[in-house]
Nucleic acid binder design. Structure first.
Length: 821
RNA sequence: GCCGAGGUGGCGAAAUGGUAUACGCAAGGGCCUUAAGAGCCCUCGAGCGCAAGUUCAUGCGGGUUCGAGUCCCGCCCUCGGCACCA
């Protein structure tokens, strides 16, 4: 048998060039075929190039894309580059090379990689988030958000790295430390742009019912949004005009309130009301609390606090309770103030014990001296005494003790970054207009209070994009501002309203901005009038299948759904959800079973597989490596295994004389394989699709003469989505090039008759234990009488049945269970 | 603490409630070869048995069922995420 001749290197190069010339994978904006929009998360073009993790997602979805094309779909399978980001900026700081230069080089490299892997992307639709023609629309979306009052500036806590002298986004802080240098971060407050994603929280939550996200992905989103029902209560002290809003999920415990605790950040609102004797102490405590690092603050240590000497009235029973400032109360959770119910909340309990505050039990069920957080019958609760918790909650709200309300875990999206390499936020600030109270926002109620953003004006839409200027130095300024702030010429501009002097916003957008809408741009990537043509959007949306990493489930996925809904409200996009289906792939670990990292030296470069074994081997291995959604470790011996498989395929199909006719069994096997591969690709069971091909090949190897040219051709067509290069070469040789590309062939049809016939093994068991087997024609194996009578002839079955009475459980074509009674 | 995913041979794993261990890897034996490599063939969960067979085995303990890796109840362990969420 000849095994020479399988030379992936040359073959793959040859077909790559041919496919490119033919434009085989271009999606057409036409409507006569059903459309299928398949999306992978576009990569960040880093200096490390694309890794085996990218390959996993891309190769697997590529197989689906190829199969669907063969099935007659008009498939959109695009790629682009999420190219803003810190690595390029850091590299620029080190070397002085402009990030745009680095980015262009990296994109060039990654493009070569992706092409070499035989991915059937439509390269005419490539997008790049750092292209001004792209970020023009990212900025445009921001302007619309601003106009609708959904983008606002607020003083919020930021993570300050004292060593690098920059602000860090939350995702850059790992375990309370700077991601880059490991220094513990400090908290500072700074004015930052925020997007009011919380306004969309309910819709982001409720609309999950309308899409097909894998269950755990949907659940993560639900938990991340974290909507909880409860009530808002007001604790007041009329004498000094003090009002404290409190949110609780347990209004049924309100009779047990023995204090109210307020977050340090909120104390400044009424610090002047604090009695003289206490004031210095409160101020000192607040100052100390605010100075603590994020990590210190969040450590669940001793619950400290300070008594303000103020009191407020419990709306339930009119009792005066003391007001404390305590740093276990977080400013951004609920209302920044809690009603202290030590008997029924663990934290309040610890606090009360330490501070010597009274503990009043109002829900029965706990042990004395211990906190009881469960529900139960109310005690000590006025007219509500005797009710169950749930009932009491309803009654209390109905009686107006508190107002029905809810809280979310989701926070507004901090949208400012003090970096260079990001989209400039297209806003201008005019001090004069700010003083005059000139505001563009009419609907601007943000976080419960009116903020008209006076003096802040968006750059006129005709002046978009606000291009990122060339700077000399990428170094952070040390003041917490972005490097853009040092560019006086760029910063100083005219106020679009009064024409006077004004300043540009120098913050840039976070990485998540460009990736929040890129799937829309693929639909119409070169349009310079609108972000995408409405008719094309109507044709292609929603994305039919979006696959990406589990790590993007809460941030990216939620952000892009938010923007999409906003664009839907504007009438820009025709669907309320961007993605009809969302799946995730598992991480690939190094051969040592640990996370791949340069420092561990366990990084696998996919290009090495291509060089040594060819792209088809890489693709096949990425599919075969394990269940698609599971974490798996790389294994070079497994790579060799799939390569061996490909060589055997080549040997059987090309290295032998093929007969003209195939046996019925060969036809049956091939028909079954087609169905299996088709189903498995759609169900993301890529590993078993490959296994089925191997199994069929093993049979083929044992029955070489039974497989004729017709079935080999069918095999090749089935293999085309998975190993496109080899399939193309074999198809070319089988057909003499007369039928064009294998990738333009129709996906095989199978009629039910092709699947029938043949033999099956029926298991014969007695009392549930297998005691024998029968080889039967498929049809006969379905006849109970026949199978049972043959079963009773088996010696081993006779042994166990003997003369005893039995009952028959019959599963046609599979098994008989004889149950002795 | 909360949420999620998982636990099956020496390893990666497969299995609409119906023959557990498909497929691949590793290992052992053989063929081919001057040799190496590649390739080909055979064996391969554990125990007992010459064999036919048979017992045990899907993290642990119960249950439902003619029949459970799969369903139910109660635990243990590993990995991911979140976390003083009021």
């Amino acid at each position: 048998m000849a095994f020479l001749g399988y030379a992936p290197g040359e073959t793959e190069k040859k077909w790559l060039a041919v496919w490119q010339k033919q434009g085989l994978y271009r999606a057409k904006d036409e409507t006569d075929k059903p459309k299928s929009y398949l999306l992978i998360e576009f990569p960040y073009p880093s200096g490390e190039r694309l890794h085996v993790g990218h390959a996993r997602s891309y190769c697997c979805l590529d197989a689906v894309a190829r199969k669907r094309r063969m099935q007659g779909y008009n498939v959109l399978f695009p790629i682009g580059w999420d190219a803003f980001g810190l690595p390029a900026e850091n590299y620029a700081i080190k070397t002085g090379i402009h990030p745009a230069v680095t980015t262009a080089t990296n994109i060039g490299n990654a493009r070569v990689q992706a092409m070499a892997w035989g991915l059937s992307f439509d390269w005419e639709r490539e997008v790049n988030t750092t292209d001004p023609g792209y970020y023009k629309w990212t900025q445009w979306i921001f302007v619309q958000l601003f106009r609708k009052g959904l983008a606002y500036k607020a003083e919020i806590a930021v993570n300050w790295c004292p060593k690098d002298k920059i602000n860090l986004a939350n995702e850059e802080v790992i375990d309370g430390k700077c991601e880059r240098c490991g220094t513990e971060t400090e908290r500072r407050t700074q004015s930052q742009w925020l997007l009011a994603i919380t306004k969309y929280a309910d819709r982001l939550l409720d609309d999950l019912k309308t899409v097909n996200f894998r269950e755990d992905i949907a659940l993560s989103q639900i938990n991340w949004i974290g909507r909880k029902a409860g009530a808002k209560l007001v604790f007041t002290n009329d004498a000094i005009d003090l009002r404290l809003d409190v949110f609780t999920t347990r209004i049924d415990t309100v009779f047990g309130v023995t204090f109210v605790a307020v977050a340090p950040e909120a104390a400044s609102n009424w610090i002047e009301k604090v009695p003289k004797a206490k004031k210095a102490g409160v101020e000192a405590y607040v100052a100390e609390a605010l100075n603590k690092s994020e990590r210190e603050r969040k450590q669940k240590t001793e619950k400290t606090g300070v008594d303000t000497g103020l009191t407020v009235k419990n709306p339930a029973n009119g009792q005066e309770v003391p007001v404390w400032v305590a740093d276990y109360v977080m400013m951004d959770v609920g209302t920044g103030a809690v009603m202290g119910v030590p008997a029924h909340d663990g934290r309040d309990f610890q606090f009360a014990k330490r501070q010597g505050l009274p503990i009043v039990e109002v829900v029965a069920g706990g042990k004395s001296g211990e906190v009881y957080e469960g529900e139960g019958r109310l005690v000590n609760s006025g007219k509500y005494t005797g009710m169950e918790s749930g009932e009491a909650r309803e009654k209390m709200v109905a009686d107006g003790l508190g107002e029905k309300s809810q809280t979310y875990h989701l926070r507004d999206w901090v949208f400012s970054r003090q970096h260079y390499w990001g989209e400039p936020i297209p806003m201008v600030f005019c001090e004069k207009c700010a003083k005059d109270g000139i505001s563009l926002i009419k609907e601007g109620e943000v976080n419960g209070e009116f903020k008209g953003m006076a003096g802040w004006f968006p750059v006129s839409e005709s002046d978009l994009p606000v291009k990122l200027p060339q700077v000399e130095k990428y170094q952070p300024t040390g003041t917490g501002e972005s490097p853009l702030a040092a560019m006086t010429e760029w910063v100083n501009t005219k106020c679009p309203v009064c024409g006077g002097p004004a300043r540009r916003e120098t913050d840039t957008m976070p990485n998540w901005a460009g990736s929040s809408w890129y799937y829309l741009r693929y639909i119409d990537p070169h349009n310079d009038r609108v972000l995408a043509d409405p008719a094309k959007l109507r044709y292609w949306l929603p994305v039919d299948w979006y696959n990406g990493g589990m790590e993007h489930t809460t941030l990216h996925l939620l952000y892009s759904r938010f923007w999409h809904k906003f664009l839907f409200d504007l009438g820009v996009v025709p669907t309320s959800e961007p993605y009809a289906k969302r799946t995730s792939h598992g991480v690939i670990l190094g051969p040592d079973g640990r996370k791949m990292s340069k420092s561990r030296g366990n990084v696998i470069n996919p290009d090495e597989v291509v060089t040594k074994f060819g792209a088809d081997t890489l693709r096949l291995y990425e599919m075969f490596i394990g269940p698609f959604d599971q974490t798996v470790a790389w294994n070079w011996e497994g790579v060799e295994g799939v390569h061996r498989f490909l060589k055997r395929v080549w040997g059987l199909a090309i290295g032998c004389q093929l007969s003209a006719m195939s046996s019925p069994e060969a036809k049956r096997r091939m028909a079954k394989l087609k169905v299996k591969v088709e189903e498995d690709l759609e169900a993301m069971k890529f590993n078993t699709a490959v296994a089925a091909m191997m199994e069929t090949l093993n049979w083929w190897g044992e029955h070489e003469t039974e497989v004729g040219k017709d079935m080999v051709t069918m095999w090749v067509v089935i293999m085309a989505p998975i190993a496109p290069f080899m399939a193309e070469e074999m198809f070319f040789r089988l057909t003499g090039g007369k039928m064009g590309s294998v990738h333009e062939q129709k996906w095989p049809e199978v009629n039910p008759a092709d699947l029938g016939g043949g033999k099956v093994t029926v298991a014969i068991s007695v009392n549930g234990k297998v005691r024998g087997k029968l080889e039967l024609e498929t049809g006969r194996a379905k006849e109970q009488g026949l199978v049972v009578s043959q079963a009773l002839e088996l010696e081993n079955v006779k042994k166990y049945i003997g003369e005893k009475q039995y009952r028959v459980v019959f599963v046609p074509g599979r098994l008989v269970n004889l149950v002795v009674v």
